[in-house]
Amino acid sequence: MTNMVPSLLRRSVLLITTLLVSFSPHVSADELVFNTEEYPPFNFSNSAGETDGLSTRLLEAALEDANLSATFRILPWARAYTEARLRGHHCVYSTARTPERQYFFQWVGPLVETDWAAFALADSNIHVTGIEELEGLRVGSFREDAVGHFVKNQGIPILLAAADRENILRLEAGLIDVWVSSETVAKYIAADTGIAVKRLFTFNRVHLYLACHPSVPKEVVSQLQSSLDTLRAEGRDERIRERVLEQWRWDP
C-alpha cells in the first residue's frame, strides 16, 4: 500500500503537467490559422485549388520574412469571420476595421484599400447618387459584410446572400435592384461572370486588414506588422499588387 502512494502521486503530477502544457496560451506559428473567403482579387481559390490573391500574397511574404507560418483556409465569410472571433489562434482577412469590430481583434495592416460602391445592371434605368436614394429599392449584400452593415446603419433594409458572388446573379435574375460591395471586388466578379454592371455611386473608402483573435501572441502580431511595414517601405507590395491585378484591368 505504501508503494502505491508515491506511484499515484507521480501519475497525478504527470497528468497535471500534461494538462498544463495542453492548455498553455502559447502557440507556435505552425498552429496559426488564417481564414478568408472568395473575395477576388484580394483573396480567392486559384485554378490549382490554392488560396491566392493580393492580400494572401502580402501575408505569405510577411510570414516568410518573419520566419513564421500559418494555415490558409477559404470558407464562407460568415464562418471565416465568426471562427476568428471565437476560436483561439485564428485570424481572418481581408477585413474592414470598423468601430464595431475594433475591440474584438488584434489588427495587422492595412493590407489593401478599396472603395465601397453601389451597382446596378448596365442596362438598368436606376439612377441614384447616394445611400438615402436607395430607399424603396431592393439592395443586396451578404452575411457579416461590413459594406452591408454600413448601408443598413443608414436606414436601408438589406437582402443578404451567403456570398458576394451571389449578388451579381441575383441582379441578373431580378431578385435585387442594387448591389453594394467593394468596387474592386465587384469589378472582378463582373469580369469573371460576364455580367455587365454600372457603378451608381461610391460612398466610402476603407482599408482592409488581417484581424486576429486575442489569443494570438502579441509578438507574432508585432512581427507580422513589422514585416508588412518593411514590404511596403521597400516597394515590394506594389510589385505584388501589379502581378495580381494586371489581368483585371476594367474601365468603370
Rank of each mutant, 00 (worst) to 15 (best):
L8A: 08
L9P: 01
L9M: 10
R10I: 15
R11S: 15
V13T: 06
L14I: 08
T17V: 13
T17H: 12
V21D: 00
V21T: 07
P25E: 12
A29R: 08
A29V: 07
D30R: 15
E31P: 09
L32I: 15
V33D: 00
F34H: 02
T36M: 07
E37T: 12
E38G: 07
S45P: 09
G49Y: 03
G53A: 02
L54I: 09
S55A: 13
A62C: 11
E64S: 07
D65E: 13
L68D: 02
A70Y: 02
A70E: 03
T71M: 12
T71R: 15
F72Q: 03
R73K: 15
W77S: 06
W77K: 06
A78E: 05
A80T: 06
A84T: 13
A84W: 09
G88A: 14
Y93K: 05
S94M: 00
T95W: 14
A96W: 08
P99G: 05
P99D: 04
E100G: 08
Y103P: 02
V108K: 03
V108R: 01
V112S: 06
V112H: 06
E113Q: 05
E113V: 01
T114V: 11
A118F: 13
A118L: 08
D123H: 14
H127N: 10
V128N: 11
G130T: 03
I131C: 00
I131M: 02
I131D: 01
E133S: 10
E135Q: 09
F142Y: 14
R143P: 09
R143K: 14
E144V: 15
A146T: 05
H149K: 12
A162I: 01
N167M: 09
E172K: 09
A173N: 01
A173P: 01
D177I: 11
D177C: 04
D177V: 04
A186R: 01
Y188M: 01
A196E: 14
K198F: 07
T202P: 14
F203V: 06
R205C: 11
V206C: 00
Y209S: 00
L210F: 15
A211E: 05
A211V: 07
P217E: 07
K218Y: 07
V221F: 14
V221R: 05
S222A: 00
L231C: 02
D237S: 05
R239Y: 00
I240L: 03
R243P: 04
V244G: 02
R249Y: 04
